[in-house]
């Protein structure tokens, strides 16, 4: 595997759209060509090289490619957009839309990611070692067919509406999540450490597992008994869980919510 290192220079306060940071785009290009890739901020277009020192070896295919961002890029958006293969490692925190529309490969962020990360993912893996913002693994506004494949793993906490409109794939948040986790979920698996309220709101399918506690359950979920060491979608969970079905605000809802018994 060959590695290209992007060392961040000063980032523009306007927010930097850097969708070119993707193994698919980098593969087969020279360092100079990579430096010249377009990035956008406000109404300006710049070059990737204006904001990053680029060094290392470029692979000829995305599969063989690793991109390392050597530090915080908290004003940079759209890292790994539509990526299909290869690996990106961010040795710090990134802003919104990390791994949006991702199809394959792997993105590891050692710090935090901003909102809308993993939006409409179809494959691959997004791993966040810090916290994630709101709308982790969401769909785009109005799109009822949300994230449909791949895996998101967050070691820390995540914000509002994790897995909104989830339509396949898996999301694991080890810490806690804010309101509306799995809202309008249809398929797939969402596992969280703990949650506040409105978990599974308006879900019609799929499974949510809360490994810790939740603050408040919606009145439209029904208790369906206790389950010990459940196995769900090939994952096994230890302990006794309360099983609920819902969201029965919806007609014919087939969602399942497990909450670990305290």
């Amino acid at each position: 595997m060959q590695e290209v290192v992007l060392t961040p220079k000063e980032q523009p306060s306007y927010g930097l759209i850097a969708e070119c940071i993707s193994c698919d785009v980098f593969a087969g290009k020279s360092i100079e060509e990579i430096e010249a890739l377009p990035v956008y901020y406000g109404n300006k277009q710049g070059k990737l090289g204006d904001f990053f020192d680029v060094s290392g070896e470029v692979a000829s295919s995305a599969e063989e490619m690793r991109i390392v961002i050597a530090g915080d890029v908290t004003k940079t958006r759209w890292i790994g957009r539509e990526m299909s293969a290869g690996e990106i490692v961010v040795k710090g925190s990134a802003e919104m839309y990390v791994g949006a529309w991702m199809r394959g490969g792997r993105i590891v962020v050692e710090g935090d990611v901003g909102a809308f990360s993993g939006m409409l993912m179809r494959g691959g893996e997004l791993r966040v070692e810090g916290n994630a913002g709101d709308y982790l693994g969401c769909s785009y506004r109005g799109e009822w067919r949300g994230m449909s494949g791949g895996t998101i793993i967050v070691e820390g906490n995540a914000g509002m509406e994790v897995g909104q409109n989830l339509n396949g794939g898996r999301i694991f948040v080890k810490g806690s999540v804010e309101s509306f986790a799995g809202v309008r979920m249809k398929k797939g698996l969402l596992v969280v450490g703990s949650a506040t309220d409105r978990v599974g709101a308006q879900m019609t399918g799929g499974t949510i597992v809360v490994l810790g506690s939740i603050l408040r359950l919606l009145p439209s979920f029904d208790f369906a008994g206790e389950v010990e060491n459940p196995e769900i979608d090939g994952e096994s969970f230890e302990g006794v869980f309360k099983k609920y079905t819902g969201d029965h605000a919806e007609r014919n809802a087939k969602g399942v919510l497990y909450v670990r018994k305290e």
């Binding site: 408040r216 919606l218 009145p219 439209s220 029965h248 605000a249 007609r251």
Partner: peptide, 22 residues
């Protein structure tokens, strides 16, 4: 409000409300 709407929807759609109050 959200909880109240969910409860109303459950009832409108023929479900049973188990809570004393929402």
């Amino acid at each position: 409000d959200y909880e109240l709407i969910s409860a109303l929807r459950k009832v409108v759609n023929g479900g049973e409300l188990h809570q004393e109050s929402v």
